[in-house]
């Protein structure tokens, strides 16, 4: 079995507009796993994902990919290894879905039709291949955007809220694909607001609170009711069983 690659954040500090967004965040993520980053609004989840993708200037600390600082890796090589899906990605022009997905091949400087076709088939996008993106539903659009990332066959998939606009069937389908990608050796890092999705599908959950790591570990530990109460200020309990948890929130009984 091959040795997993590592994406490592060490002592990350990031400020935006003079305000510290990430404070001394250290993480060590391995390929072959699904990691969810959770936290309340403004906790720094998206910034952490951008930092892992090498897209924000760091005040201090470093992100290392396979032991090498991201900043030292040439942009195209980095792009082939790290696939990044931003939150609420806007699509500037009304391109057809197939052309949108083909953009994922840009880091490879090729137009590998077979890979694009496979990804579109896997994400149930072939029926819309020629459709302009303006004519897609929110869910179809979210799948097309994720397909663009997958078409680059990156070693790491860093996605910010990829499941937010999807119905439960497509959420399930997409999570399966992301899990499959992880099984196939990719490192999957997702920013998720839905704690139940994180609990049920992530191997590891990193909880951020005000730019610091509040909890880190498997779902049962990182999203224990006591931690949710402390970080989100919400009383809750987990219902159901392994892989089918649902979060019940409300005033304490």
């Amino acid at each position: 079995m091959s040795v997993p690659a590592v994406l490592e954040a060490s002592g990350l500090c990031v400020a935006r507009g003079g305000r510290g967004v990430l404070n001394d965040v250290s993480l060590n993520i391995k390929t072959g796993t699904v990691t969810a980053i959770c936290g309340p609004n403004g906790a720094g989840k998206s910034t952490l994902l951008e930092a892992l993708a090498g897209l924000v200037p760091l005040q201090s600390g470093a992100v290392l990919l396979g032991g090498r600082a991201l900043a030292e890796i040439p942009a195209l090589q980095r792009a082939r290894q790290l696939g990044y899906l931003p939150q609420a990605a806007e699509i500037a022009w009304d391109v057809a879905v197939r052309n949108l997905v083909m953009l994922g091949r840009m880091p490879h400087r090729d137009a590998d039709h077979r890979i694009v076709q496979d990804v579109m088939k896997a994400l149930d996008l072939l029926p819309f291949a020629a459709r302009p993106v303006s004519q897609l539903s929110g869910g179809e659009r979210a799948r097309a955007l994720l397909a663009r990332v997958l078409a680059g066959t990156p070693e790491w998939i860093l996605a910010d809220e990829p499941l937010a606009a999807l119905d439960i069937a497509h959420q399930d389908n997409l999570v399966c694909h992301l899990r499959q990608a992880a099984k196939g050796g990719a490192g999957v890092v997702l920013v998720l607001h839905d704690l139940a999705l994180a609990m049920n599908h992530a191997d590891r959950i990193v909880v951020l609170d005000e730019g610091r790591i509040a909890a880190d570990g498997p779902g049962a530990a990182a999203l224990a009711p006591a931690i949710i109460r402390r970080v989100w200020g919400v009383e809750c309990e987990w219902l159901g069983s392994q892989g089918r948890f649902a979060l019940s929130t409300g005033p304490a009984r």
Partner: peptide
Amino acid sequence: ALILGEAAARSMG
């Protein structure tokens, strides 16, 4: 690449 915004474009190299 900029079709998808500045951040996505930079992530694509």
